[in-house]
């Protein structure tokens, strides 16, 4: 379907729908918080690599393993966990809102 095919009024009506406003407000807020978390974790790690090499070289518990290695693996695990949190919430709450919005528009 061409993007211009729908009459102008259709998207204006959706924009005013409380369901649409709830969906974008909740999802954007959630997504930006998670994005900020990920950016903070990642650039925190990068800044430490760039400016605090000595701190990253600190050994943990008498082994040769350093703080840098643990933090690095932590960022990898955190990336996966954050996407998991988003998917769980999106599959339940956001999809539900999208469905009720679809019903509203198609009715």
């Amino acid at each position: 379907m061409d993007k211009n095919e729908r009459p102008e009024t259709s998207h204006e009506r959706i924009l005013r729908s409380p369901n649409f406003q709830a969906l974008v407000r909740q999802r954007s807020g959630f997504a930006w918080i998670l994005s900020a978390l990920m950016l903070g974790l990642y650039f925190g790690f990068i800044v430490l690599v760039a400016f605090a090499k000595e701190l990253m070289a600190v050994r943990i518990g008498g082994s040769v393993v350093t703080l840098g290695i643990l933090l690095g693996l932590g960022v990898i695990v955190a990336a996966f966990v954050l996407t998991g949190i988003y998917v769980v919430r999106a599959n339940s709450r956001f999809d539900e809102l999208t469905r009720s919005l679809q019903d509203e528009v198609l009715s």
Binding site: W32, S35, M38, L39, Y42, I69, G72, I76, L82, T83
Partner: peptide, 19 residues
């Protein structure tokens, strides 16, 4: 360790793409 910098950078974009 330096290899880890690449790995983490390649991965860190994915959550952002998702969100």
């Amino acid at each position: 360790f330096d290899g880890l910098i690449y790995s983490i950078g390649f991965l860190a974009g994915w959550p952002i793409i998702m969100f």
